[in-house]
Amino acid sequence: MNSWRLTTRRFIFCLMTSALIWPCAFAFEAGTGPGFITHGDNRMTPSVQSWMQTSFGLLAGITNSGEKNSAFSQQTALAHVSYATSLPGSQSLEASLGLGEIFSRTTLSKSGEAGTRASHISQAGGIAMGLRWKPALLGRKLKFRLSWDTLYVPPGLSVLYFTFGHAQSVSTGLGWDF
């Protein structure tokens, strides 16, 4: 059996590769902030969004939200991985396009015949699109961001329980450029 060993040549190769990749791959912006999610039926719930964006435009974000009313309680997460780029001719506007997933866990308040509360876990995938406003207000490292993301689940694929196929997320946030 061949075992992989770290030789001097391999070490130098890894070091050189890392040095080449480092400036672009490991320069990133990360942040978090409050906002709200709108569901397909116009319900609006408070949310918290966290994101990370590399310098070459790869953007990953997740928005968490919760709701409790007399009929049910629900936790929702809206996640996406997208490619983000500045709009031509604009210094502060940015758009993104990618794939997203919505997860929700709903527990009905009314107990069933057996005395248990019905709980539903559902998820659906779709196309994630976003528009962001990132003005240069707070200096070079600290970034203010206003984002407006949407997840479009094509008709027929929406199997979510009390969440529906179309969700929008509007968030403000502060990020740090690492």
């Binding site: 397909g40 039926d41 116009n42 008709p155 179309h166």
Partner: peptide, 13 residues
């Protein structure tokens, strides 16, 4: 095409 008008699911085109 397809519209969603704030009443629930996505609609077919």
């Amino acid at each position: 095409g397809s519209l969603g008008v704030g009443t629930g699911h996505s609609n077919a085109a």
